[in-house]
Design a protein around this nucleic acid. Structure first.
Lengths: 247, 247
DNA sequence: TCCGGTCTGCGCACACTGTACGCACAGCGG
DNA sequence: CCGCTGTGCGTACAGTGTGCGCAGACCGGA
């Protein structure tokens, strides 16, 4: 009992130097990303995050308005990892866009929790990293020959595709991670259940079975690549039409 | 105090007939959807849901393993609202896929909370409604002339695009809803902030400004349509190549 | 008519969450 | 030396998911 309440005397008060160089917004966000990467989104609580920074939960609120704001910051932070090649005129645009798309996907797979969080954060596009990313992508499409307004639509289409695919992959990978197993092991364990569920549907069942032959990771890669190529084909065809019409 | 603890006597115990026809899984899921539609995802708690059903929170656990399972059920439920046209051979496939894509988007906009929830639910594709949807879409692509394995890739691409776009729209709409304003009012209120944030980026700023002229809803519709058409163009071109090669 | 068993709802309790509030202390300019 | 401002934290509160075990409802058989 006596140990519970600190004795209010100057002598009992230890003059604790802060060995951590104090708290800062950047530090908090960085540690949050590390926590999310390590333990997933359900493990991110203000108390746990505080503990990791040798701080109390409520201390964080000096640097971050609330949990939602922290999440916005964290999202913008990982958006900063995405690389966009410099805008190069001519035919280079397609490869550049593809590079960027793969970079976004790689980011999502590095931080699978983004998937569960992207839908919750409104206005993510106002973050500085997101704005920078959008601006550079816009430049890419403009340099390719798209008018500005259409460049915006093209950009959104590519991101929508990449994020949609990324979310589905990330949800799968999060589940694999929770199982503690290898991706392939997990798929094999799931096999009887999935096959039974697909039983009523002939085509679906056949597709399930034939897909088992492939390594799941390779299947994911190919699927992502396939759709991206189709979308780029469509954009490319459209560009040809716009340019021949415009002059 | 005495009113707090019930007196353990036969006489005090009221013989309450259940006017609600008891609890059932379907009822719980349906009410959860209604609650989510009305108050958003953060309002879904077991206690609130129970209260809406004239039941205690823990009663729900007789019919649903836990909250995560409830969410899986809810997601599959709304997937059931999506309509897929019957597979028709020939050129009809493109229109049919587009119809289905628009139907998915409409569902997401009807239930914007799906966006925040889709990333959290692994294995959503094992739900009966999802399986049915996938099977019918697979049929559509196969009838169009895609080999089964490629039909699966095509289907995933379209869904990825639609879901990615839908999530971004839903996040925006959820924010609008929280503001209690009209979509257009909200956009105008946001305008100074957004413009200031875009200031450092010339192209982005120009794009922001010129987009303000349009009604936001119309802009969203056009954006969705644009990307979908590009993707379908790409798939269509690919189909022509496959068919001319295969025979 | 009664009996036993199974199914369903619920009160309670526990550990945990986000966060408002206000105190205690550090570092500062005067 | 005094105050002021900025930072960390202890406490507290309302609310969360959910495990546990009791109580009553219902049902097939004697």
């Amino acid at each position: 009992m006596t140990s519970k309440q600190p004795i209010p005397s100057v002598w009992t008060r230890q003059n604790r130097e802060r060995e951590q160089p104090a708290l800062s917004r950047g530090q908090i966000v960085a540690e949050a990303v590390r926590l999310l990467d390590a333990e997933g989104v359900e493990a991110l609580s203000m108390r746990r995050l505080g503990a990791r920074l040798n701080a109390g939960a409520t201390s964080l609120y000096r640097h971050v308005a609330n949990r939602d704001e922290l999440i916005e910051l964290v999202v913008d932070e990982v958006y900063g990892e995405i690389e966009v090649p410099e805008a190069a005129g001519g035919e280079g645009w397609r490869e550049a866009v593809a590079t960027c798309a793969h970079s976004v996907r790689a980011m999502i797979l590095r931080h699978p929790w983004t998937a569960s969080v992207l839908g919750q954060v409104g206005l993510s596009y106002l973050g500085p990293h997101v704005m920078r990313l959008n601006d550079r992508m816009l430049a890419l499409f403009e340099a390719a020959g798209f008018p500005l307004a259409e460049a915006d639509q093209a950009l959104s289409s590519v991101f929508a595709y990449v994020i949609g695919m990324g979310i589905s992959e990330a949800a799968w990978l999060a589940m694999v991670a929770r199982s503690g197993q290898d991706e392939q092991e997990w798929q094999e364990n799931l096999r009887p259940t999935a096959e039974r569920a697909a039983q009523p549907y002939e085509r679906l069942h056949e597709q399930f079975v034939s897909q088992q032959a492939q390594h799941p990771r390779q299947a994911r890669d190919e699927k992502f690549h396939y759709g991206l190529e189709r979308l780029l084909d469509g954009l490319s065809a459209r560009l040809a039409r716009v340019e021949s019409a415009g002059g």
